[in-house]
Amino acid sequence: MQNSTPATQSIRSSLSNLLWTLVRYREAGISIFILLLVFVVTLRAPSFLTMDNFNDILLNISILAIVALAQTMVLITHGIDLSVSAVIGLVGMMVAFVVKQNPEMPVILAVLLGMTLGAVLGSFNGLIITRGNVPPIIATLGTLSIYRGLVFFYSQGTWINSFELPKNFKMLSKGTPLGLPNMVIIAILVALAVYYFLNHTRTGRDIYAVGTNPDAAPFAGIRKERIIFLVYVLSGLMAGLAAVLWISRFESAQTNTGAGFELQTVAASVVGGVSTAGGVGTVPGVLLGALLLGIIQNSLTLIRISPFWQLAAQGLLILIAVISDKWILSRVERTKK
C-alpha cells in the first residue's frame, strides 16, 4: 500500500486499519476458525486428519460449492435465488429421464443438456425480475414451487433408480482418472472460472458495482438490468450443472432431490462473508464457507454427536458468522476518521 502516513496518524486509525484488514480479508477469519475446528476435532477423533476423510469432505461439498458460487453472484447484486433447489430437482429429473432412454449418449451431452435446461429456468427468473419488476425473493419463491411442481408433473411421482442409469454416467462424478474425483475437479474448475469472471472481466466487476450502488450504475454506463438478468441465468446454469452431478453421485433422481438446498447455499455464502445487502463477496470466502459447513457435518459424525444436531450447528454457525461480522464492522465505523 502506498499510503504515506503523516506523523500525526493516531493509534486509532491503525486499529481501524487492522479491522479493515479483517473485513477485507474475511478469508483469514474463517481459515482460523476452520483450523481451530480441525485441531479440536482431531484431538477427539484422530481419523479426521486422513486423506480418505479429506476426500470424503471434498466430495460432499463439491455440489454445494458450485451452487453457492452461483448464489453468491446473485447475492452480490442484492438479489437472492431461492429456486436453485427446485432447478436441481427439475433438471436432475429431466436429465435422468433422457439418460435412461438413451444409455449410449455421451456423458458430456448430458452435462450440456443439464446446463442448458438450467439456464432456461434461470432466464425465466431473470425475466420476471428485470422485466416484470417482481422482487427477487418473491419471484424465486414462486418459481421454487413452480419448478418443484413441474418435477412431480414431469415424473408422475416416479423415481429414477440406480439400476436405470448407465455406469459411465454414474462414474461422471466419482471417477478418479486425474487422482481426485471428477466432481471435485469440476468444482475446482468452476471456482476458477467464477473467480476469473468476477475479478478479471468488466462484466464481473459490473456485478459488484450494481450490487454496491444500483442507483449509480447508470452514471457509470453500466446496464443494470442486463447484469441482473445475467446472474440469474448463470445461477440456473450452474444449478443445472450441479443437478447432473447430483444424480450421478447419488445415482437416483427423486421428486424431492435438492429440497432445502437453497438455504444451504445461502448459508455457505453468508458464512463465507457474502453480504445480503449486496456488493460484497469473494470466491475464496465462499469456498471456505462451504468447506466449513462440510467439515462441521463430517466432524459431528466422527466425534459421535448425533447427526440430528448437525442442522442446529449449521444454523448456529450462520448466526455466529453474521454477528461477528456486524461486530467488526461497527468497530470499524467507530474508529473511522
Partner: peptide, 27 residues
C-alpha cells in the same frame, strides 16, 4: 438491537430451530 438483516437472521434460526427439533426427538 443488533440490527442484522432479517433475512439472514431468520435463515440462521430457520436451520437452528429445525436442528433443535431433530436434536430433541431424533428420528
Amino acid at each position: 438491537k443488533v440490527k442484522l438483516p432479517a433475512l439472514v437472521v431468520t435463515l440462521g434460526t430457520y436451520a437452528f430451530y429445525r436442528g433443535l427439533a431433530y436434536g430433541f426427538l431424533g428420528d
